[in-house]
Amino acid sequence: MYPILEKQVLSDVTKLIVVKAPQVARKAKAGQFVIVRIDEYGERIPLTVADYDREAGTITLIFQEVGKSTMHLGTLEAGDELATFVGPLGHATEIENYGTVVCVGGGVGIAPIFPIARALKEAGNYVISIIGARNKDLLFWEDRMRAVSDELIVCTDDGSHGRKALVTEPLKELLEERPGEIARVWAIGPGIMMKFVSLTTQPYKVPTIVSLNTIMIDGTGMCGGCRVLLEEGARFVCVDGPEFDAHKVDWDNLLARQQFYREEERLAVERWEHECRLEGVLREGGA
């Protein structure tokens, strides 16, 4: 069992947990992910490493409550334990001094873009970061991102904080205003955001790396559920990725595949919310 040492509520639906898992922390690098299972009944879900502390033997994860499993995970507190915690999985980000780079983090994608931006900064890059979310409440780690970036652009869809824009807007301006200057772009966020970042950078031929988060079970190449179509054929996100050349990804296929269990996910959430309500009623009744 893997104890949760610390928990922070970053927004109503965004939570941070620090988990004790020395064997994972010993090896984890920016760009890699872990597979988490809450208990005997739980799913195995992939979550990207947001931070690690080799000495303390801990891994920091940030997740958004989007389905039953993440909602359940969000109810756990420091002192609770996870049944499964495997990793680090996937390839680490290829960090070099590329010159000027742009790191784009959307929504909960801010968490995994942070260690990448930090590593790029440490490698001597001039790091421009763009972080965005639907609204102010969903933003987090602005200070941490600022600390590892030479320039930081913050935006929200509704303008409640920073600039009122989608992340692709400042990105396009950078590409326009600084032609030939930007060597590489990283983008992590919802599938649809990564698709549009890819479409934004493609005309400028700036190499763009995305970190894909697909449905998977084992995370070691066994199930093939995570396969993504690239120009050269199908690849497994878990062992060939999770980072890929954004310009080669078949985005429509990726987005369609994420919908396959939508009906089951809806059912599971309904059942979970019902259980939570029942529990609430029972607790109040007992008190």
Binding site: I217, D218, M222, C223, G224, G225, R227, V228, L229, A234, D250, N253, A256, R257, Q259, F260
Partner: peptide
């Protein structure tokens, strides 16, 4: 067409 939804490996199906 191997990447349409509903196409899977026996490994994935049986593991689930």
């Amino acid at each position: 067409g191997i990447n349409y939804n509903g196409v899977m490996s026996a490994n994935e199906f049986l593991t689930r």
